[in-house]
Design a protein around this nucleic acid. Structure first.
Length: 254
DNA sequence: ATGCCTCAGCTCCTGAGA
């Protein structure tokens, strides 16, 4: 079983690239973030023709998430239960016996902003919900655009970017508290190339210079860790014409 | 340089992303 996450920065623009990628990398589950379209515009037919079912949770202009899968998604949850939110950021579903949570974590903008405070509240709510989900589902994967780096290894310029958004101690403590629930960072379970990132700024030739951040993650429960055989960033689509600024991350389970 | 790209939208500028 293969599962992947990819922030595609507008599904309207990127649909052909997603279909092309799935043709080459026929994963069983793909979590998408930043659809940037309303539910009525979701291209369910195009995915069906490619052999994928979908559940989606869209929003005008911003956010929006989807789960594509070969087999049906059941027990679907939209956003964090009990957490008031007008932004479409989370989809949970059970697929092939695995509890899959795809999420687009808030960006946070700057440590002193209202958006950062929202990010912290959102992370508090997510952690408590994931705790409950883990108690109910032994096989669980939490994947998406976390908008948080684990540590300096995830940052192209750890000195220059110290304390800036995605790299603050507060965000990293939140990420560690998710790990503390009993989840593992799947990428770090396996040997990786140096300077291993999942996002590069569109500006300044950042991709060519590999000036990036690793902010897209796949966290897995112990039961899935035992089955994990590979996990890596696929930089190929970032080399496309008109790419997303993020690359997909792919997990292989035996 | 509080910018550089890219995308959406009450679209020829602005807000947001990260």
């Amino acid at each position: 079983m293969k599962l992947a996450t990819w922030n595609i920065n507008s599904l309207t623009v990127r649909l052909p690239q997603v279909l092309d990628w799935l043709a080459v990398q026929p994963v069983d589950v793909l979590a998408l973030q930043e659809l940037k379209l309303t539910d009525d515009k979701f291209p369910a037919q195009a995915f069906a023709e490619a052999g994928y079912q979908a559940v989606w949770f869209g929003q005008k202009t911003y956010n929006g998430v989807a789960l594509l899968s070969r087999t049906p998604a059941t027990e679907v949850v939209r956003n964090i239960p009990g957490f008031e939110d007008d932004q479409a950021r989370v989809l949970g579903a059970t697929i092939d016996g695995v509890r899959v949570i795809g999420a687009y974590f808030p960006n946070g903008q700057a440590p002193d902003s209202d958006k950062f405070a929202y990010k912290m509240r959102w992370l508090d709510a997510l952690r408590e919900w994931v705790r409950d989900e883990m108690a109910a589902h032994e096989k669980l994967v939490l994947m998406g655009d976390y908008n948080i780096t684990f540590d300096d290894l995830d940052v192209w310029d750890p000195v220059g970017l110290a304390g800036t958004i995605h790299c603050t101690p507060e965000e990293r403590a939140q990420l560690q508290s998710l790990i503390g629930l009993g989840l593992s960072d799947a990428v770090r379970l396996f040997e990786q190339p140096p300077k291993n990132y999942s996002w590069w700024d569109y500006r300044d030739l950042a991709f060519r210079r590999n000036r990036g951040l690793r902010i897209d993650h796949i966290l897995i429960s112990e039961a899935l860790k035992a089955r994990a055989s590979a996990c890596a960033v696929d930089k190929t689509p970032r080399k496309n014409e008109r790419p997303s600024d993020h690359a997909p991350v792919v997990l292989t389970l035996d």
